[in-house]
Amino acid sequence: MDQLFPKLPLDSWVETIVDGLDEHLGFLFDFISTCIGGMVDFFQLILTGLPFWVIIILLTLLAYRAGKLSIALFTFIGLLLIQNLGYWEHSMETLALVLTAGLISIIIGIPVGIWCAKSDSVQKVVTPLLDFMQTMPAFVYLIPAIFFFGLGKVPGVIASVIFAMPPTIRLTNLGIRQVPADLIEATEAFGSTYWQKLTKVQLPIAKTTIMAGINQSIMLALSMVVIASMIGAKGLGADVYRAVTQIKIGEGFEAGLAIVIMAILLDRITQGVGKRKKA
């Protein structure tokens, strides 16, 4: 059936924009690429440079500090299992990517969240953007990421950040807005500046909610990092991807199990950090 109107050339418009950006802002993308690449390499250097048992002990201690004994025990056994199955190297690569993506999400997400909480008009602009970022199929981000940053871990991290950041922004905004109005009145009645109000009252009280957002961001980053292996970000995702394409059920299960262990571990540790210090 014929169309009522000729098709809108949305695809070619987007391509034009992307081309233009690449042409004029190439130096910026190079700079970003260097920074993110550096961060991933740094984490990877630590995580794979140290002997595996050092990392296992450190992570177990961290899990113990953040949570309960059972979580520490799970961390210890889970990591040993990963090492035993031969996925240690790839798991650490994945962890390095997740940490980088998570960290960037926090560095950008919390200030944006604070800004949203401060201004209703900012919130009105940012909220639909976040909806867009979260509902767009994750694979779609890979395409411009490749275009600007090539193949490899950097576009993987960029796509992960876009996908993972919204919960941090949303929950930072929510957490600050949920601080009871009479507490805000009290801080203002004593003559606090905006910065004092934020750091001494709003952020400490919103901390639990913000940590829930960070936890969500890190979980999303993990799921995206696995997908990003399709564009050459290494790690556990690459193992799963290979197992799928070659229909190797056993290998796929092992790599999948390693991802699940990493996911539970990251989830419990970040949750624990949020709940801690309320004794």
Binding site: P180, D182, L183, E185, A186, E188, A189, F190, G191, S192, T193, K200, V201, P204, I205, K207
Partner: peptide
């Protein structure tokens, strides 16, 4: 100026106490 007045001259006590829980 207002902040200074609030700090030095005006104390306030609230109905629901409005203490900082943390």
């Amino acid at each position: 100026q207002l902040q200074q007045v609030r700090r030095k001259k005006l104390g306030m006590v609230f109905q629901k106490f409005a203490l900082f829980p943390h």
